[in-house]
């Protein structure tokens, strides 16, 4: 169970270019942080570095539990949801299969996944193939795993982008609940999030 995310003195390089350096951030349980910055400032790269997919040039990323620092690998594999630009959905599979797979792969149950689908108004879509879904519907389907498989740290990259007003409000509710239940959210955004957040700016 992650209670805090610590990022200390981080520098990330892509290709030959240093995106940012000396970046520090601490997110604690019950807190949502909006990561803002210009295009190319390194918001996505920071999220991917926290998830362990990019290796920082220097700096430290750590996760704390109630009893002190956690093993980084375990924290990522068991405590970390990451939702990037792509939804990770297979066009030729059925919504129900993808929903249940994603949730169960992240440690949830099939029942919880179906409950999440109800919550996100996906029930009518369950028997369709993913290919016929709109971008917003796909995003909601991908978001369902956040509810279906409880993991404390959510790393969200532009989670609002393809969503309509109703869905944005719904996501706001879900995020507020997660934070109220002791969860942590770190979201890269351009538009303001529909919940109260602390803002962290990235880049020069």
């Amino acid at each position: 169970m992650i209670t805090a995310l610590n990022v200390e003195d981080l520098a990330i390089q892509r290709g030959e270019r240093v995106l940012f350096r000396h970046f520090g951030l601490r997110v604690v349980a019950g807190e949502a942080v909006a990561l803002v910055g210009a295009n190319g400032a390194g918001k996505t790269s920071l999220l991917r570095a926290v998830a362990g997919m990019i290796r920082p040039v220097i700096g430290r990323i750590g996760f704390d539990g109630p009893a002190g620092p956690l093993s980084i690998d375990d924290a990522r594999r068991q405590g970390c949801h990451m939702l990037g630009h792509y939804d990770g959905l297979k066009a030729n599979r059925h919504v129900r299969d993808e929903l249940v797979f994603q949730s169960r792969w992240c440690g949830g149950t099939a029942e919880a996944a179906l409950a999440a689908a109800t919550r996100l108004n996906l029930t009518r879509l369950l028997d369709l193939e993913v290919r016929v879904l709109s971008a917003g519907q796909r995003r909601r389907l991908a978001l369902a795993r956040l509810i279906g498989a409880p993991r404390p740290l959510w790393l969200l990259d532009e989670p609002l982008a393809p969503l309509d007003t109703v869905s944005r409000a719904l996501l706001g509710e879900v995020m507020a609940e997660h934070v109220a239940g002791g969860g942590l959210i770190l979201a890269a955004v351009h538009d303001p999030l529909p919940i109260p957040v602390r803002t962290a700016e990235i880049g020069q």
């Binding site: 362990g52 997919m53 594999r77 297979k90 440690g107």
Partner: peptide, 16 residues
Amino acid sequence: ERDFDDGALDLLALGP
């Protein structure tokens, strides 16, 4: 390649 293109490889990397 499919999993890489559609982001599922990220999901697989963060699994148990």
